[in-house]
Amino acid sequence: MTYSEENYLKTIYHLTSASEDAISTNAIAEKMETKASSVTDMLKKLSEKDLINYIKYQGVSLTTQGLLAAKMIVRKHRLWECFLVEKLDFSWDEVHDIAEQLEHIKSEKLINKLDDFLGNPTEDPHGDPIPDANGMIIKIEKRLLSELEKNQAGICVGVKDTSSDFLQYLDKQEIALGSQIQILEKESFDSSYRIRVGNKEIMISNKIASNIYVK
């Protein structure tokens, strides 16, 4: 596959993970910030390679072969993120763009050795699951912080928004994977939250609470 084909496949995989329905051409175009006509051309190519099921106006789904290929791309991306954070001391808001480049490395032997070198991690620095060499994923039981009730607490196990701006915000608030977060108050006026993180209390918006996963 070309880099572009891999990027499309990964995008379809992520959209599929968020919805049980077939993925529309427009959804792919929006996610990839491109024209619907360009998406249609690429979908035809991926369909010819038996990586997706594509019927015009009825949406897209991954074939068994396409699903495994997409998982291997995601596996490489998330393993490289682990390597960059754990071994090269990058912060979690810096690694996504670099991993976007490294995920296209073709060597399966290199990736398997990287996996072993890192101790076969099951989650990346953002708390997302890493597929193993066979495409198996250990499901992480989690829910959004916004779903907790007053006085309930959870451990931060991931984030829904992996943008640099959001991760830098969390760093400023000293919220990271493993942080214990307790809901102290829910404000009915603006749906904001007063929470305790470690030994300090802070206010966060509903948008922030809706992008933090806890268990």
Results as ranks from 00 to 15, higher is better:
D21N: 10
L51Y: 07
K49W: 07
L170K: 02
A27C: 04
S179W: 01
D116S: 11
Y213V: 04
L148N: 00
V214M: 00
T2F: 08
L62M: 04
Y13E: 08
I98Q: 03
I130Q: 01
N134P: 13
G178I: 01
T11D: 03
T40C: 07
L79F: 03
S164W: 15
I28G: 03
G198K: 01
S47L: 06
E94R: 07
S188N: 07
E174N: 05
H126F: 11
K49A: 08
D128C: 14
Y169M: 15
S107D: 14
D21M: 05
E147R: 05
L114D: 01
W80I: 14
D50Y: 09
I52Q: 00
I202V: 06
N151K: 08
Y3W: 12
D161A: 12
T122H: 09
V74T: 15
S192W: 04
E6Y: 11
K150L: 07
L51H: 04
I73G: 05
T11R: 02
H14Q: 14
D171M: 11
E5W: 06
L167P: 06
S38L: 06
S146V: 05
G158W: 12
R78Q: 12
G127P: 03
A36D: 08
S37A: 05
F166Y: 02
T40A: 12
K142W: 06
M72R: 13
S164N: 14
M203R: 12
K215H: 10
V95P: 03
V74K: 12
Q173V: 13
E33P: 01
I175A: 02
D171L: 13
T11P: 01
E174P: 01
F117V: 10
D115R: 08
I155P: 01
A18S: 12
K56P: 09
E147W: 05
S205W: 01
T16N: 08
K87G: 06
K172C: 09
I138Q: 14
I155C: 04
I183W: 01
L184F: 05
T34Y: 04
G66K: 00
R75F: 09
I23R: 05
I137F: 07
D41V: 07
K71D: 02
P125I: 01
L67S: 12
D132S: 00
D115W: 12
D132Q: 00
L184P: 04
T64E: 15
S91I: 15
A153K: 09
D116T: 11
L68E: 09
I111R: 10
E30Y: 03
K172W: 10
A69N: 14
T2A: 09
L9Y: 02
I208R: 05
A70I: 01
H96N: 15
A133H: 15
E185L: 13
K106G: 14
L51F: 07
E187S: 14
T40S: 10
A22M: 10
F117H: 10
T162Y: 08
A29E: 00
F90V: 02
S19C: 06
S17D: 11
M136A: 15
S24C: 02
S163W: 07
H104N: 03
G127R: 03
E185S: 10
C156Q: 09
E48T: 11
D128Q: 15
L46H: 00
G178R: 00
K87V: 09
K160L: 13
I105F: 15
G59L: 05
H126M: 12
G127C: 05
S192F: 06
K87D: 12
K186F: 07
N134C: 15
